[in-house]
């Protein structure tokens, strides 16, 4: 769609810029400041240049946490995006079922993240949790997320999919509802199958909301902290020590703001880079469509 060219549109954007910049710029500058200094004591700082960056980039535990993080976010996107779209397609379009579905599906999103971790910790415990006891006693599968790294991964993934698929589903559902009925009528007249209606009408029309859902799930899963930390504490061993959990270990538990700042900025740049690539790619996918 051709856009009108008009620089006065900035006036409409200005309030957003001011309100976001207020909280964005100064903290970012402060963290950059941390990352180039060695803070020995309050008021006692030495400029160290890029030393923390070199130390962090060479840290093998950071590399391990990073690969773990990529695997985690990759799985999250592969599972949650298709599942969320399927749920949205299956949800009723009118009637009382709509209200029931919308309210139910939103429930996991509304629980504070640390609480989710705690509830799942009990829920999956082999002795007193429904899932853990069910697996061990009824199905006879030895399942213990505190001892077995694979079980810990499965537990964290289940929790994550349970928690966040509703976000994709809600966005996709709202996107579907925003498609004018006329498009469906046209498809019906043309005798289009359900699959081609999905491929040529629903999917292109949902591109906007799905781009947001994809980017949100990528960013938030890449930055995930509270839920796995409470559930597994990063273990057993380091098997579920994701990037944020390692960052907090360095920055806050050892109270080292210098390396912590450098780590944060490297982390930020990685998320930024991948989000940008995904955004560009998703923008391009729809360019060919004339819908």
């Amino acid at each position: 769609m051709e856009k009108w060219s008009n620089n006065k549109a900035w006036l409409l954007v200005l309030p957003v810029f001011v309100i976001v910049a207020f909280s964005a710029i100064i903290p970012l500058m402060t963290v950059i400041n941390y990352s180039v200094q060695d803070i020995l004591a309050p008021g006692q700082k030495v400029f160290v240049g890029t030393e923390w960056y070199r130390e962090m980039l060479g840290d093998y535990r950071l590399h391990e946490a990073l690969w773990r993080q990529f695997l985690f976010s990759g799985l999250v996107l592969l599972i949650e995006m298709p599942l969320g779209i399927l749920i949205a397609l299956a949800m009723p379009k009118k009637g009382w079922g709509v209200s029931v579905c919308l309210v139910t599906i939103a429930l996991p999103l509304l629980i504070p993240w640390n609480t989710i971790g705690t509830i799942w910790f009990i829920f999956t415990r082999p002795d007193i949790g429904l899932l853990g006891a069910g697996m061990n006693n009824w199905l006879g599968i030895a399942f213990d997320h505190t001892a077995n790294p694979l079980d810990a991964w499965i537990t964290v993934m289940m929790m994550e999919v349970w928690h966040w698929t509703p976000l994709v589903a809600l966005l996709a559902y709202a996107g579907l509802r925003a498609i004018p009925e006329a498009y469906y009528q046209a498809a019906r007249i043309d005798g289009a199958s359900a699959w081609s209606t999905f491929l040529f009408i629903q999917l292109p029309k949902m591109r906007g909301v799905l781009t947001i859902a994809f980017l949100l799930r990528f960013m938030d899963s890449f930055l995930i902290y509270a839920e796995p930390f409470v559930l597994t504490g990063g273990g057993p061993g380091n098997s579920t020590t994701f990037l944020s959990i390692y960052l907090v270990k360095i920055a806050l538990l050892q109270f080292d703001l210098g390396p912590g700042g450098a780590f944060s900025l490297i982390y930020f740049v990685i998320v930024l880079l991948f989000s940008f690539i995904f955004y560009q790619a998703l923008q391009r996918v729809g360019k060919g469509e004339k819908v």
């Binding site: 949100l216 938030d220 902290y225």
Partner: peptide, 27 residues
């Protein structure tokens, strides 16, 4: 509308969700 810096501004907005929160709490 199309205006100076629109695309950059639009993406910059989203970058504010991309920083790990832990170290930013103190500032």
């Amino acid at each position: 509308y199309q205006f100076v810096g629109d695309k950059q501004m639009f993406f910059w907005l989203l970058t504010n969700r991309m920083a790990p929160a832990a170290v930013f709490a103190l500032p």
